[in-house]
Design a protein around this nucleic acid. Structure first.
Lengths: 132, 132
DNA sequence: CGGCATCCAAAGCGATACTG
DNA sequence: CAGTATCGCTTTGGATGCCG
């Protein structure tokens, strides 16, 4: 886990919120967890497709520290760990859907051509999670 | 303006939206413009309080390229330039308000102690802009 | 006044190797 | 299996100086 030398500062509420669920990985991560919870580390990594362990572990830890995601460890052999949303995490879904809806309305359709884009988008933030 | 070596990719609609209005400066910038438009470059810089010209000019240019902010130049002496939201930019305000509302509900009250935080938050995303 | 060009420090992030 | 430690490259962004 990287340690900042200069502490972060927030100047508006949006800054604060985006520190929790914004950035390079966390929107997609939340999208996948919301649709597939509880989900194991390896499956999460596969669905992220191009994330490193470093980035995945760090992102998950940040989401846990923010109380958005919970981690459940089964002390089996081999080890099994499952991630899912907390109640607070669930409250984020309508917010993400609002952002998603804006993006769909206000973008050129060309951005939807990437296959991963479509898949994840449809699964997660278009429809609310449908109970798996 | 920095040129990326590795092109950006988006995997979900939220990624796409946050590329437009997320990041370190743009939420606050939009907040200030929404409340004070049209607003001049220098005043914008003062209200941002700790932004460099490099970061401010780059952020403004990105917002212009995304069609969120418009620039109006008066060829007076000395030069005057004013920034304001486009119609598309206005559609972002409810989205930002939604994010802001979530942050207020789901955060410890301690984060509101910074004076800048309160000021900007109240002016911009709580109430819709009130016509100045 | 409203920027842009250059340079450099800080932060983000992947690859690899390793651990419980 | 589910991560962590270290390293180095990529990217961000502030300081300074310059220009129309």
């Amino acid at each position: 886990m990287y340690q900042r030398k200069i502490p972060k500062e927030f100047y508006c509420t949006v800054d604060y919120a985006l520190d929790i669920f914004g950035g390079k990985w966390k929107p997609r991560l939340l999208c996948i967890i919301a649709n597939d919870e509880p989900i194991r580390y390896q499956k999460l990594k596969e669905q992220m497709e191009n994330i490193s362990d470093t980035a995945l572990a760090d992102s998950l830890k940040e989401l846990q520290n923010a109380g958005i995601v919970k981690r459940h460890q089964f002390n089996e052999m081999p080890l099994r760990v499952e991630y899912s949303l907390t109640a607070k995490g669930e409250t984020l879904i309508p917010v993400l859907n609002k952002i998603s809806a804006w993006a769909i309305q206000n973008s050129s359709s060309s951005i939807y051509q990437g296959k991963h884009f479509k898949q994840i988008h449809q699964k997660a933030f278009q429809t609310k999670k449908n109970g798996d």
